[in-house]
Nucleic acid binder design. Sequence first.
RNA 1: GGCGCUGUCAUCUAACGGUUAGGAUACCGCCCUCUCAAGGCGGGUAUACGGGUUCGAUUCCCGUCAGCGCUACCA
Length: 487
Amino acid sequence: MTSKPRVRFAPSPTGFLHMGSARTFIFNWLYARHHGGTMILRLDDTDVGRNTQASVDSIFEGLKWLNLGWDEEYKQSERLDLHRKIAWSIFEKGLAYRDFTPAHTGDAEKSGAQGTWLFNPGAREVSSAESDRRAAAGEPFALRFRVPREAGQSVRFNDAVYGEQIKAANDIEDFALLRSDGMPTYHLASCADDTDLKISHIIRGQDHLSNTFKHVLIFEAAGGAPPQFAHLPLLVAPDGTKLSKRRHGPVVSVTTYRDAGFLPAAFINFLCLLGWSPKDDRENMSLQELTDAFSLEGINRSNAVVNFKEPAATPEDRFDPKAVWLNAEHIRALPIEELSARLLPIVQSAGFKITPEKMLRITPLIRERIKLLRDVLTAADFFFAEKLAAYDSAELIPQKGDMAMALKVLSLARDVLANVEFKHDPLDQSLRAAAAELGVKAGQMFQPIRVAVCGRKNAPPLFETLEVLGRETVLERVERAARLISQ
RNA sequence: GGCGCUGUCAUCUAACGGUUAGGAUACCGCCCUCUCAAGGCGGGUAUACGGGUUCGAUUCCCGUCAGCGCUACCA
């Protein structure tokens, strides 16, 4: 290929942005960026009845979070003249005809006798004189493509992913180009715009593979060569069916991942691994690495299961484990400053008062302990809370120890902590020395202190934690723990 | 019903017809260690089934089965 590719993502605003659409957007974007081409966003909004502003908002909201951007933007509803012009040019060539049959309601004909489903019998045979007369009389009609019916005719194209595709023309119905209200159908509008916008590659879901034969017919009738097609294997739910919010709930919506604390780069990384592979063993990849590695050849042909659980026991449990793992990997790869800046608003909007400076000191202590950004609320709660949440005094008992040992440890710890310099090394040395003095193991010394200051047994490393918490808070919490035992 | 696409561990995937069928996640175990993580090491699980072609099929062909998609004046 000599010229730069022009690709498009063309969602129809009839629902929220789900993962499958997001992946299609990403693959188009990667292809464009990899080849230095142009990424186009086009709203395929010709179905006036089903389009909603809420859906448009949802799509932009999702795409904005992905933060990839695009180069050109169009709206089909503003290009209707072009669509109609092309439809009528096809009619002028004798490749389309008026169908005065009233629109079918429902799918009652599906199981009808073979052959009749292809088109409305008789409609395409109406003479042009009669057709003109009825149209002039104001009778409503749909404009249908006249699919060639001569024996042996076939339509073919070469898909970059699925290879050579051939279909007998007799298996293609006379599909509509214009509805009886004059609005273009998806097939017509899409091809008309793809031609006009000089789209070079159509990268879209495999659910359009069968439709592509119709599109090839339109492209050729409109007098142009079809673009290169590349169909993507579908993303399916664990039950094997196509992703749907109605069936599978909000786990399939892009904004759910955003709100749960996924990093856009991790989410993108995860989506790329569904149906595409760099062919080496890499999985954890940055956007740049993905861009460099992306190619149509790496796309495979079988549907991929997004392994989510809905409903799930825990918030993180509902997502595909690999997505969560990748997110944790991306979190750990982030510079502390950036991670801290992303954590701060989450903590603040949960109602805690915290300064950016303090957050920056806490972040290194938890970044290997959170998988989703929102985990900061449970992993670092004791740093934010004015008053520690209540805990069972039994938690203070060290391994192989008893309540008396806990009290002994806490009493001495209070004295030590009242005087030691609040830095990692002095804390380490003096607390270990205190353990030796009491004749307990280091772990038995640390555990009661940890529970006293964190309110639980599992927490970040002790000395760093004490350092960030500061003497005043630590002493207060240690004394409170001692009192809890004494009562 | 018709047409089409697809079928490798639980899941995502790798393997110019010749590999002990590889990697990752998840799970389990060990190590490290002040707890939890992170990290290191190790473990089990797969070519849907049946026929061909071939010296040799995960790989090519046919059939069966299964899943999915399309079959609208939806996209």
